[in-house]
């Protein structure tokens, strides 16, 4: 519940303040967001399965975003930034789908 409220407040704040994304963060923010979404969906699934742990959630959330951004950064340094970010997005997308499938099975039993 608190997480949901936080999410709503965050979106509202973002749209009200209309912050400019700093230039150095621009290539990494989208990837980090996708990674965070993955962590969030994973957290919801874990909660539904009764194995949710705040510490794991926080660590996985922060870890996912940092590692995703780091991979893209490394890719940019190696000159394969766009390919690597595509790869990261694909992997995270697959994970999000499998997590959502888990949630669906828990909620609807199907």
């Amino acid at each position: 519940m608190i997480a949901l409220i936080g999410l709503v407040i965050g979106v509202a704040l973002g749209f009200m303040l209309q912050p400019d994304v700093p230039l150095w963060l621009e290539p990494y923010l989208p990837i980090a967001i996708v990674a965070a979404l993955d962590a969030m969906v994973g957290g919801v699934r874990a909660r539904l399965e009764g194995i949710f742990d705040e510490k794991v959630f926080v660590v996985s959330f922060v870890g996912n975003t940092v590692i995703a951004a780091l991979i893209v950064f490394l890719g940019d340094q190696l000159g394969v930034g766009s390919q690597l970010s595509t790869g990261v997005v694909v992997v995270l997308g697959i994970r999000i789908f499998s997590n959502v499938a888990g949630i669906r099975r828990k909620l609807f039993g199907a």
């Binding site: 997480a3 965050g10 704040l13 973002g14």
Partner: peptide, 20 residues
């Protein structure tokens, strides 16, 4: 504490999504 931390993280996520 953990709940609050999770909420804060989600707040940051929402903020980042909106900014992006």
């Amino acid at each position: 504490a953990g709940q609050i931390a999770g909420g804060l993280l989600c707040l940051v996520l929402g903020f980042a999504v909106a900014a992006q």
